[in-house]
């Protein structure tokens, strides 16, 4: 079964429902935006997909592979750009890319090409041998972004993609996300910059206090925005 399914997922922390019976599907080659106020549950959805947050109930599957059935194969098909970069302080930027390349089994030549291309576009070529603590927050975000863009995956999770990126970085990321979409990758992103995502997201899922309150096409954005404001 193609695409991503998030079915009846409930997550609670200390008996409080953070996600309450949430369901949605993502089709290949689409960009879906998770929209909601702070604390609505957007990042929790991302973490639950990655297994960083345990769920109480529900099922998650990608291209027919259940998260609990085969966790490694499930993860093989997705990549994640977190809101706050979580890089390893003991590895340089280049070593992070190599770790990703090895984990996603990317062919060496292909990996080198991609690293060179992304590093040049995001202007971090001279920072490749730096440790994360000697990079600015924006630079760390760029390193984390490149890590997630290296593998060809079916699902790309992007938490606040434009946070910490400069104008050129943001424009490049938007370009890349559109490119990934053309390559049939399903993209799930969260953002508070509604005007920006309106330009390239296909669908939206609106969350409120851990519940889905609306799912629709991005064309209906103006109606949505009035409600969001």
């Amino acid at each position: 079964m193609d695409g991503f399914q998030f079915s009846h997922v409930t997550v609670s922390i200390q008996k409080k429902h953070i996600l309450d019976d949430i369901s949605f599907e993502l089709k290949p080659g689409t960009i879906t935006a998770l929209i909601g106020h702070n604390g609505a549950g957007k990042s929790t959805i991302m973490k639950t997909i990655l297994g960083l947050q345990e769920k109480d109930e529900g099922a998650i599957s990608l291209n027919g592979v259940g998260q609990e059935e085969d966790f490694i194969q499930f993860k093989q098909q997705l990549a994640y750009i977190p809101e706050e970069p979580f890089l390893l302080s003991e590895l340089t930027a280049m070593q992070h890319f190599q770790l990703y390349g090895e984990s996603y089994q990317i062919d060496t030549e292909n990996l080198k090409e991609k690293i060179a291309m992304y590093a040049s576009e995001l202007e971090i070529t001279d920072k490749l041998d730096e440790y994360p603590e000697s990079l600015s927050k924006g630079m760390r975000q760029k390193v984390q972004t490149i890590c997630a863009l290296l593998p060809d995956v079916s699902l790309l999770l992007v938490d606040e993609p434009f946070m910490g990126l400069d104008v050129y970085g943001s424009d490049f990321l938007e370009k890349i996300l559109k490119l990934k979409k053309q390559e049939n990758t399903a993209i799930l992103l969260t953002s508070h910059q509604l005007d920006r995502i309106k330009g390239f997201a296909d669908h939206y899922i609106m969350l409120q206090q851990g519940k889905v309150v609306n799912i629709g096409y991005m064309e209906d954005f103006d109606v949505l925005k009035r409600r969001f404001d």
């Binding site: 990655l50 960083l52 490694i72 994640y80 977190p82 979580f86 390893l88 992070h96 984990s103 996603y104």
Partner: peptide, 12 residues
């Protein structure tokens, strides 16, 4: 347990 390593598809 590290978030970054955890999120990767491990070649176990």
């Amino acid at each position: 347990k590290d978030k970054l390593i955890f999120s990767l598809p491990w070649r176990i």
